[in-house]
Amino acid sequence: MTTQSLPLTVADPDCTPQIEAHAIGTEVAGAVAVTLKALAEPLRLRMLSFIATSPAGEACVCDLAALTDVSQPTVSHHLKVLRDVGVLASERRGTWVWYRITPGYKAAVSTLLESFAPAALEALVGPHELTGLEDVDAALDHLATDLAARHPDLGPGVVLGTVRESYTALARSATVSAHLLTLTERFARQRLADLTREADARPQVLFVCVANAGRSQLAAALVRRYAGDRVVVRSAGSTPAADVHPAVRPELAALGTTEGEAYPKPLTDDAVRAADVVITMGCGDVCPVLPSTRYEDWLVGDPALASPAGVAAIRDELDTRVRALLADLLPDLDLPTP
């Protein structure tokens, strides 16, 4: 029996990729990734931009706490993360600690804030042009003008900024661009209402989960069912999905929530500031910690991949927790028997 040898394939030296010559080294990539991970947090980026644009090139913890409207321990935690990776340096003067960007990172931070950030925002909005609209900017300007007339206590610039930010935030996860303007109007109305909230006897509750497509939507729907307009309820996601989970839609419909009311929304500082109670469900430490705000963390399963029986069990668990919450917030509320 004769064995035929297979021909050897000889790589063309001119076509062989010079991987080691062009790719970043493994150790360097690891070190850079650690720094990028530290920067990948909205609150830290805001602090970094404040320090970078400060006339003195530095900022005190007290200034940053006022900027972010969160507690000083929360500010100190985020600053420590940036200091540990070498982006910031600190110096204690009396009772306060001052922070500045380390010399080696000044050019990198400038590039991040002046070039990368605008490019990232443009890329997020660019792929989501509104179908049927020739000029998105004109549509947003018209919406802002209409909303500004309803909020004379806010400047037109604030309203326009809120409308544009709302559009950009929703566009990040939008899959049906034709509905973006309608969703932007609803989201902007909610945010403007939060910005102008006056003293109100009604408690305001904010439910936050990861996708705002299941648990937080169900919890908000249960509050609306039992409390009606006696409680102002919001829901949001740390990383909002493109749509509500299909398995959750029938449950929301049974609770009287329409598709127009249930759409994933990103978490905003406005919603947190307006809330009396913030309830998180599996989204980690994403909410700014504000004084005089009550926080709870509910360990509830995610209905995203649950069976119909599993979704029903999650709904029942939320129902029990919502009843207990409302009994505390509204002792005189007549809750129906489970």
Rank of each mutant, 00 (worst) to 15 (best):
T2R: 15
Q4E: 11
S5E: 15
P7Q: 15
A11T: 13
P13D: 10
Q18G: 02
H22G: 03
A29F: 04
G30D: 03
A31N: 02
A31R: 10
V32T: 02
V34G: 01
L36M: 06
A38Q: 04
L39R: 05
L45M: 10
G57E: 07
E58Y: 05
C62S: 15
D63R: 07
A66C: 11
A66Y: 13
L67A: 11
V70L: 12
V70P: 02
T74R: 13
V75T: 01
H77A: 12
H78C: 06
H78E: 08
V81Q: 06
V81L: 13
V81M: 09
L82W: 09
R83N: 11
G86Q: 15
L88P: 11
L88I: 14
E91G: 06
R93G: 10
G94F: 07
V97W: 04
T102N: 13
G104Q: 13
A107Y: 09
V109E: 01
V109A: 08
T111I: 10
T111M: 09
L113Q: 01
E114R: 15
P118I: 04
E122T: 00
E122M: 03
V125Q: 01
L130S: 04
G132H: 12
D146L: 12
A149H: 13
H151G: 01
P152K: 09
G155Y: 03
P156V: 02
G161R: 14
V163W: 05
V163K: 01
Y167T: 05
L170V: 15
A171Y: 02
A171C: 10
T175D: 12
A178D: 15
T182N: 13
T182K: 15
L183V: 00
T184P: 02
R186A: 14
F187I: 08
F187N: 03
F187W: 08
A188Y: 03
L192I: 02
R202Y: 03
P203S: 09
V205E: 05
C209W: 04
A219T: 08
V223F: 11
R224S: 10
R224W: 12
R225Q: 14
Y226M: 09
A227L: 06
D229C: 07
S235H: 04
A236F: 06
T239R: 04
T239L: 08
P240R: 01
V244I: 13
P246F: 10
P246H: 12
R249M: 06
R249C: 01
P250L: 07
P250D: 01
L255E: 01
T258A: 02
G260A: 04
G260T: 10
A262F: 00
K265Y: 04
L267P: 05
L267W: 11
T268K: 06
V272R: 00
A275R: 05
V277D: 09
V278P: 05
C283D: 08
P288I: 02
T293P: 07
T293F: 11
R294L: 14
V300L: 07
D302F: 06
P303A: 13
V311N: 03
V311E: 00
D316F: 15
L325D: 10
L330I: 14
L330K: 11
L333T: 06
P338W: 14
